[in-house]
Simulated assay, not measured.
Amino acid sequence: MRLPDLFAGHTQLRGRLRGLWFKFKIALFRCDFRIGPGFTIGGPVMMTNGWNGIIRVGANLVMDDLKITLLRGARLEVGDRVSANRGLIIGCMEEIRIGDGTMIAEYVTIRDFTHRIEVGVPMRDSGFKSAPIVIGENVWIGRGACILEGITIGANSVIGANAVVTRSVPPNSVAVGVPARVIRTLAPEGAARQGAAR
Rank of each mutant, 00 (worst) to 15 (best):
P132I: 04
L28G: 10
A84T: 03
G99Q: 03
L148M: 11
M47P: 00
C31G: 11
T11V: 14
L76W: 01
S130N: 13
R30H: 07
T40G: 03
I141K: 00
I68F: 10
I133T: 08
I90G: 00
I104M: 07
L28N: 04
S83H: 10
L61F: 15
R16C: 06
Q12P: 00
I96Y: 01
R56P: 03
L20R: 10
Q12H: 10
C31Q: 02
R81T: 03
G101Q: 12
M63I: 07
H10T: 08
V57H: 00
A27C: 07
G120N: 09
I96D: 00
P44W: 06
G144M: 10
R124P: 05
T11Q: 11
I104P: 04
L13D: 01
L13M: 05
I55T: 02
I135M: 03
P122K: 10
I104C: 03
C31V: 14
G50H: 06
F128R: 08
G136R: 12
G150Y: 04
V57W: 00
R72H: 06
E95T: 09
V62W: 13
P122W: 03
S126R: 10
T40I: 13
V119Q: 10
V78D: 04
I133Y: 01
M93Y: 04
I147P: 04
E77A: 13
L61Q: 01
D112V: 10
G15F: 03
G99Y: 02
G101R: 15
D112R: 07
V108S: 11
V108T: 02
W140S: 11
K25W: 13
F29E: 11
R124H: 08
F39P: 06
I96M: 12
K129Y: 03
C146T: 07
